[in-house]
Amino acid sequence: MSRTHVALAATLAAVTAAVVALMPAPAGAAADDPVLIRPAALARGADPAFPALVGSTIVDGDRRVRIDLPDARLLGRAGGAYVVAFTPVNGTHQRVTRVRPDGSRRVLLRGRGWNDAHLSADGDHLLTGQYLGRPGRPGRTVLRALDPRSGELLVQRTLAGARDVLDARDGVALVSGDGVRRPTVRWDLTAGTIRTLTGSDVYLADLAADRMAAWTRDPYLGGCSVVTSISDPGRVWWRSCQWRVEAVAPDGGRLAVVPLLSDGLGTSTVQARAVRGRRLATYDIGGWFGQVRFETATDLVLDAHGRVRTALVRCDGADCERASRTVSTRRP
């Protein structure tokens, strides 16, 4: 090869290397490298598209409503007000209150023995269950649907075993099974009727996305998680014995998952996966993640509790930004 050809080849190689260096990484590359979330270090982006609790303030678009309620959990919006569950400082029994935009409140539910309350996606029903049972004897759960504006009881049913409301919208609620003995059911809140959905013990359901996740058996005894369609429980999308589902994208195409046996305050690792299990991104934090929700088909909003600062963080792949101001991290 002549010196001219050698020089030309070297120049072409250099140009090619430069072009390759400037090209974006393949779409799947970010999935292999965990993204470390540091809430205070992230650039500020838009507020979340849904009402969210940031510190002691409800953030909903341009609206800010301060609530100052202990151990508060925002259930959602019902009409022009918000439904919040909290535990009074002087007691262990939860309450649910309706908070108006001016900050005024009305208690909807109080007392002992009921499970965590659930507000339907359309804001029309406030649902809860009360387990009644004694050691060594079969128990039952009293399911109630209340009006989230007045607290009035709308409909009530009693089912055998320990049950939980998984999701509700458009006058329908899905209620979990009881291990391998009793099926997951569909509760018609208008007619009051109950029908079996699947014999599996479903632990998460999203009616809008047409997805649910069930246990094959007790996860502490070797059980795995299986993702199927609500409309077709026999159609299996993904099965995992290491991860469980925390949230589903609105179109059903993505999942947010955490380690199978995560417990306590929350996990320090969340993954975004395609519905068939392909890993899209891994998010780690020095503290813990609270609630995990999809804002769009691709944007995941993480309640990110760092060691010092806490914020809502929006991520799509390796691209993350803050979706709220930061507040001091407070351990329950």
Rank of each mutant, 00 (worst) to 15 (best):
R314E: 15
A318I: 10
S150T: 06
Q94V: 00
A213S: 05
A214R: 01
V84F: 00
R278I: 12
A247S: 07
C224Y: 13
R100M: 11
D68A: 04
A297F: 09
T326G: 00
A41S: 07
T296H: 03
A208P: 08
L36F: 07
W243V: 09
R44D: 11
L265M: 11
D62Q: 15
T4L: 10
R63Q: 13
R314Y: 14
A43D: 10
T282V: 05
G286M: 13
D178N: 14
D319M: 11
R98G: 01
T310S: 04
A160I: 13
L261P: 04
L159P: 09
Y283C: 05
R163I: 01
R186H: 06
A40H: 01
F289H: 06
F86R: 01
V84S: 03
A272M: 14
H125P: 07
R73N: 03
P233R: 10
D303G: 01
Y220R: 04
V202Q: 03
G76E: 00
F86P: 01
P24M: 14
L146V: 04
L146M: 06
L119C: 00
A247G: 04
V172M: 13
V65S: 03
G61M: 08
F294Y: 10
R239W: 12
H5K: 11
R235S: 09
G199K: 09
D319N: 11
C224L: 13
V54Y: 08
G177C: 10
A78W: 00
A21Y: 12
F50R: 06
R182I: 09
W215S: 01
H5W: 10
R195F: 08
V202R: 02
G286F: 12
D188P: 12
T267L: 01
V89L: 05
P39T: 02
R44E: 13
R100P: 09
A9W: 08
Q291M: 08
D232I: 02
V84E: 01
P24A: 12
L69R: 02
V275W: 08
V227G: 03
P39K: 00
R73V: 04
R182A: 10
G223N: 00
D263G: 12
L119Q: 02
G55D: 09
L153A: 10
L74N: 00
D170E: 08
G111D: 10
G113E: 12
F50E: 07
L53S: 06
D206T: 02
V292M: 03
G61L: 07
G113L: 14
S56G: 15
A81M: 02
P48G: 08
R314L: 15
V185F: 11
D303K: 00
L280E: 05
E246C: 09
A25D: 10
A25S: 10
F86N: 00
G136W: 04
V175E: 04
R73E: 03
S104N: 11
W187K: 02
V258D: 14
L74S: 01
G123S: 07
I67K: 00
C315R: 06
W243H: 06
H5E: 14
V59I: 05
G91W: 04
D68F: 00
P135K: 01
S176T: 11
P135H: 02
E246L: 11
V301A: 08
C315D: 11
